[in-house]
Design a protein around this nucleic acid. Structure first.
Lengths: 200, 200
DNA sequence: AGAACTTACGAACACTCTGTATGAAAGTTA
DNA sequence: TAACTTTCATACAGAGTGTTCGTAAGTTCT
């Protein structure tokens, strides 16, 4: 028989996935502070007991949601970047920036990763987690650009931080604009110009 | 006689000032969410009744704190910028950036204006309030640079947004670094290079 | 397979915190 | 001095987080 016999790993995976998915939509649409744990578990179809068993607290769930969102958009950008390849790292940086801007137009994405995450996780924790995602991507591209002789050999961390800051703010600017297409072109022009300024 | 006779305006000004000062230190040191209204009124030497009479809610107090902090650092930067004057707007932009980085090293400043404000006020409200402060400053400098023929005639809003983003993130990067002086020099080098790239 | 054990979950409780309501005190106006 | 408004203090109601404790589901050992 064993009609509904699921292994423990399957159970945990299912409930965690349901909770993360629910948190993603709710946090993304209303912001972290405006969403109660009750709404989350209702959306996920579980109880608060399950939530607090799987995650330390509300912040823990948010961290999991954040990781998932970052994972998604970073993977998407990475594939775009990979198509251009190591032949033209700065070109890949431009292309990746555009993809990021387009993806970050999604309210859920920028509300979670750009607005709430720094306040909820704390800035340093936010950046520490970002290390493995967009940060690693940009630093990798910069190093490739150095190796390819496109930019001068120099420390990439400060540049990466400035770049991330410019990109994040640009994304929010585009997301808030009425004419998103025009806003995208405006900031892409500025960003490309800055990128070009680093070329040897 | 009239030992302690204060006018109504004086009373409101005093309690509001006390509340804003208390909120500034507490929000700045522990973050918005970690500070209860009870702690604030205790620090300010008033009761919660006074708080909720003077401000709509906790967010209202935070908004007042935010405005005050922005007011302070913007004024400081503006005087620095004014010393260089309209003769060299791009030079003034560089100088202003450095002052901003140094001031934003103060944990209270960046916790309030950069980490909590977007999440508490919402991004668009945050930016709307920022319009009259740092934003107006940068746009004014850019317009002056155009007038002085230092940069090409172009829309300044997208540039200002990218610049603000780069500056904000740079400030947080410096604030989190162990060797703040070295980190400052690193990002200043990057920022100055970017600024120069806009020169005609 | 059955017993002992561990993991996942459900329901109820305790606590904290925000915002409001109501009344008193201080100040203003006539 | 009296009527009125503003400022503040206290008490209360409601919402929400995290914990506790019991139960069910799954795993391991013999």
């Amino acid at each position: 028989m064993k009609v509904n016999r699921r292994t423990q790993a399957e159970r945990t995976a299912a409930t965690r996935a349901a909770l993360v998915a629910a948190g993603r939509t709710l946090f993304g649409n209303h912001g972290y502070a405006a969403v109660g744990t009750q709404s989350i578990v209702a959306e996920a179809g579980v109880t608060r007991g399950a939530l607090y068993h799987q995650f330390k607290d509300k912040q823990g769930l948010f961290a999991a949601v954040y990781d998932q969102v970052e994972q998604d958009i970073t993977a998407e950008i990475a594939t775009q970047v990979a198509q251009i390849g190591a032949s033209d790292p700065l070109g890949a940086l431009k292309a990746g920036s555009r993809v990021f801007l387009e993806r970050a137009t999604d309210p859920a994405v920028h509300q979670i990763t750009l607005v709430d995450a720094p306040a909820v996780l704390g800035w340093s924790e936010w950046r520490a987690r970002g290390e493995e995602f967009g940060f690693a991507l940009i630093e990798g591209i910069l190093l490739a650009a150095i190796a390819a002789g496109q930019i001068a050999d120099q420390p990439v961390r400060p540049i990466a931080h400035v770049a991330i800051g410019a990109l994040d703010e640009s994304a929010l600017y585009v997301a808030a604009a009425e004419d998103k297409a025009a806003a995208t072109e405006d900031v892409v022009a500025v960003l490309n110009r800055i990128i070009d300024s680093f070329a040897i």
